[in-house]
Nucleic acid binder design. Structure first.
Lengths: 304, 304
DNA sequence: TATCCTTACGGAATTCGTAAGCATG
DNA sequence: CATGCTTACGAATTCCGTAAGGATA
């Protein structure tokens, strides 16, 4: 048994049982992959993969049992490297953060500025992607830290912590009739065409739920990934916008007015997630602490 | 990084940093051990061991941090083999139980008889040793299951479960004056020379505590590892005995009388222990369930 | 001086990649 | 017939043991 064999098994599952793809991913030859799998199966005395003819189709029962331990061994092997790096060069290394536009643009700049000052030697990579992609990157180990308002909870491989809570708000052109209302209501909003986030982004599901619960049909004329796009179309009069309030900047967005929606929309919680059982370097913990002060990282390592 | 290197690191710690001894234990050459350690240190970029000149003295700080993960990786590698064996041959394998004389002689025979009938193909090895040795064997992985009344609790590497609870009892020659007492008291016992267990065995510590708490000096004329020895000397009149009541057999021990001590001695709990994070085969779980019905083995695997 | 670790070197074993062959959708 | 896996074989690398050398109690 060796690490190469285990890596190949893990990659085989990840790449949908295509050994050619596995060979490419591991930078080795396809026959080598084949042989390694066979050798491991011989040593363990069990077939790990279901085969039809020469093709691999999936995991056998024993394979399903074993894969979890395989993943943990490989994670721990990576942890060894990380822990060693930690001691070898406390202030150096790299940190990959996967996050959405909203967080990258409005929540992270301050934190990242401070982080860069504190750890100038750390190579920080910011990946902007959808909440789903964030989860994938965390699970596969491509990213160390994920931050989003959606999708991070309820993934068994991840541990997540709340960063901050907020409510959606409405933005309208400055002289819009809605600004005259004494109290903003869902009914009033629903009378206008709406520009808001795309499904799966920045609490869009919460917005849909609220209007559905109130039995209101809304006319969503445009859905975008980010608030900048939304604001642009609100400004040109396409409709009114529903956004995360931190995307509004009174000084810069002069043509627009923000109407708070705390009493209308349910609370949204932006969360930070990391992979369970993965060792985090000092600077990564620092980053986590800056974003999610309540995070309890001890449990992350999965040590009983 | 490879498994051989990790094994060598683990063994180096276990053998007190003597690389020659490590080489013997791993069945390889001493220079090979040296090189493997150096290679791993080079790869990780940290020194794992404190050296004075050419001798190894102990773990460095990074070494201490890393060793836990190293141990877990190796345990998981063993788990892979065990899980695979489980599927390859459910009814075959081996099981090593480490236990004390008392358990081996009085508590285990029934369980083992049933176990052998249920799993005739499993090679069952029973190691009789002291509670301390049991702990060592469990920690090092030489034994799968340990059973004893002492020493198993409070070892961080182990998980233990209660098997059954009992109280020490007094044995005396059949016509002994103590048999005439309406109620047996500690004071009455303390007036006689006593034959009981050796320190560290079968709840001896409990016995000492009780008499110390009652401010009684007792004259322990002989301490033995097992009740058979104790009974022998009680029969020849050396003194009265304090033993675990399951060691008394009314039918066979005709010359002796058992005086229950439930009201005198605190409860002793015989416990079963296994190593944390070690996968147990079906038959091992069966054995555990037979001895310790309340055992929750799920947590044993250390999966969060 | 005996114990213990390192370095050096040569042979053995393993690993890995290329080429060729076969099965499957 | 294109994709995907296996077998076969030779080259390269790694691994491992022996021998020799140096440090320390």
């Amino acid at each position: 048994m060796n690490f190469q064999q285990l890596k190949i098994v893990r990659e085989t599952v990840r790449r949908g049982y295509n050994l050619t793809a596995v060979a490419d991913a591991i930078y080795t030859s396809q026959p080598g992959v084949s042989k390694n799998i066979k050798d491991l199966e011989d040593e363990l005395g069990v077939e790990l993969f279901v085969r039809r003819g020469k093709r691999l189709l999936g995991l056998t029962e024993p394979g399903k049992e074993l894969i979890e331990t395989v993943e943990r061994i490989l994670r721990d092997a990576q942890n060894l490297r990380n822990i060693a790096d930690q001691f070898a060069s406390r202030e150096q290394g790299s940190l990959t953060v996967a996050t959405t536009h909203t967080q990258a643009r409005y929540a992270l700049p301050d934190v990242i500025k401070q982080f860069k000052e504190r750890y100038p030697q750390v190579h920080l990579a910011l990946h902007q992607c959808s909440p789903r992609e964030i989860v994938e990157m965390l699970v596969s180990g491509e990213a160390d830290i994920g931050i989003a308002t959606e999708a991070l909870e309820g993934v068994p491989e991840l541990v997540s912590f709340p960063c901050y809570a907020w409510h959606h708000a409405v933005i309208v052109p400055q002289d819009h009739p809605l600004t005259q209302l004494p109290v903003l209501t869902l009914e009033a909003i629903a009378e206008w065409p709406i520009v808001t986030y795309h499904e799966g982004f920045t609490g869009r599901s919460q917005i849909d739920k609220v209007f559905a619960a109130a039995n209101l049909d809304v006319d969503i004329v445009l859905s975008a990934i980010d608030a900048d796009v939304i604001k642009t179309y609100v400004e040109v009069g396409l409709g009114i916008g529903i956004i995360a309030p931190m995307a509004f900047n009174a000084a810069k967005d002069t043509g627009l007015a923000l109407l708070p929606g705390d009493h209308l929309f349910p609370v949204s919680t932006t969360r930070l997630a990391v992979h369970r059982g993965v060792f985090l370097r000092d600077y990564a913990r620092h980053f986590v602490a800056a974003m999610a002060p309540d995070a309890e990282l001890a449990e992350t390592l999965g040590i009983p």
